[in-house]
């Protein structure tokens, strides 16, 4: 595993997400096998692999949204910023606050653009009305959406184009100051132009947030991530700097996959 950029900030841990022997079952079907991953703080890491390889499952266990299904059983640990999120003392609301999630299909709420941005902020900051305009402006600026929507902040978020909706979905996570952003195929519902725009935005957010992005699109993984993880049948096959993984894969399965022999 090669480090591309060494994090010289001593305050924050080297790894944002760290799993040990993570096993996950849906009922009797085992979806993850002994996953040991260390995902670097402040970097963009992509997860690739054929359908059903467990990449989305892994993503969804990092913010504990999987367990809502009821029939999911998990063994092993997931540490986020050195705290085990499966510890019984952990408050789920705090987990969700630290770890934002972006979905495949943009899901803005059917309220105004402004209220979409402030939704999370209002959940976590009781009664503080101050600075709301600033919060909205800075979040929308960060996702490169401000100039397009500043004159129609009262329009519904659901009226925007898909690309803008997805950016809005990313923007609304920012006011609660998460440290990790999980993205589950964030561009697969978008056209090529929208994809490029959202990728550009993800790249902009690099450094400030740890971003873990699941994608079916190998070219996207290559363009828009710094480290890349290849998964197959619920196991991690390879985890390398993106450039190395695509140029000199260490495992045969990885080479076969990136050359398009399956998946």
């Amino acid at each position: 595993m090669n480090a591309i950029i060494d994090q010289d900030d001593n305050q924050s841990p080297e790894y944002a997400i760290h799993t040990r022997k993570l096993n996950l079952w849906y009922g009797t079907f085992q979806a993850l096998f002994d996953v040991d991953l260390s995902i670097r703080n402040g970097m963009i890491t992509s997860l690739i692999g054929p359908s059903g390889c467990g990449k989305s499952t892994f993503l969804r266990s990092v913010n504990r949204i999987n367990e809502r299904l009821g029939y999911v059983r998990i063994e092993g640990d997931i540490d986020v910023l050195d705290n085990n999120i499966y510890d019984p003392a952990v408050e789920l609301v705090q987990v969700r606050k630290q770890i934002g999630m972006v979905f495949q299909r943009p899901n803005p709420l059917p309220i105004s653009i402004r209220d979409n941005i402030l939704f999370g902020h209002r959940l976590h900051n009781k009664g503080s009305k101050a600075d709301q305009d600033e919060i909205v402006e800075s979040a929308l600026k960060q996702v490169l959406l401000w100039d397009k929507v500043k004159d129609r902040l009262n329009h519904k978020g659901t009226e925007l184009s898909l690309e803008e909706q997805q950016k809005l979905c990313i923007a609304r996570l920012l006011p609660v100051k998460p440290s990790v952003l999980l993205m589950d195929e964030p561009c697969s519902a978008l056209d090529p132009k929208g994809t490029a725009a959202v990728e550009e935005l993800i790249w902009e957010l690099r450094g400030e947030y740890t971003i873990l992005i699941v994608t079916h699109n190998m070219a996207q993984a290559r363009r828009a991530s710094e480290e890349c993880i290849f998964m197959l049948m619920g196991k991690v096959i390879e985890h390398q700097a993106t450039e190395d993984l695509f140029v000199t894969p260490a495992q045969k399965e990885t080479a076969d996959y990136i050359e398009g022999r399956y998946g």
């Binding site: 913010n63 949204i65 809502r68 789920l92 609301v93 705090q94 987990v95 969700r96 606050k97 934002g100 999630m101 979905f103 299909r105 899901n107 803005p108 709420l109 059917p110 309220i111 939704f119 999370g120 959940l123 976590h124 979905c169 609304r172 996570l173 609660v176």
Partner: peptide, 27 residues
């Protein structure tokens, strides 16, 4: 009311009641 709205809320750390009160019931 689309499930995606609820998921969006839960993922921002909204409780069930906050989700119901602010998004599900109005819709």
């Amino acid at each position: 009311v689309p499930q995606a709205f609820r998921e969006a809320c839960w993922n921002m750390g909204a409780t069930r009641w906050q989700t119901i009160r602010r998004i599900v019931l109005p819709n």
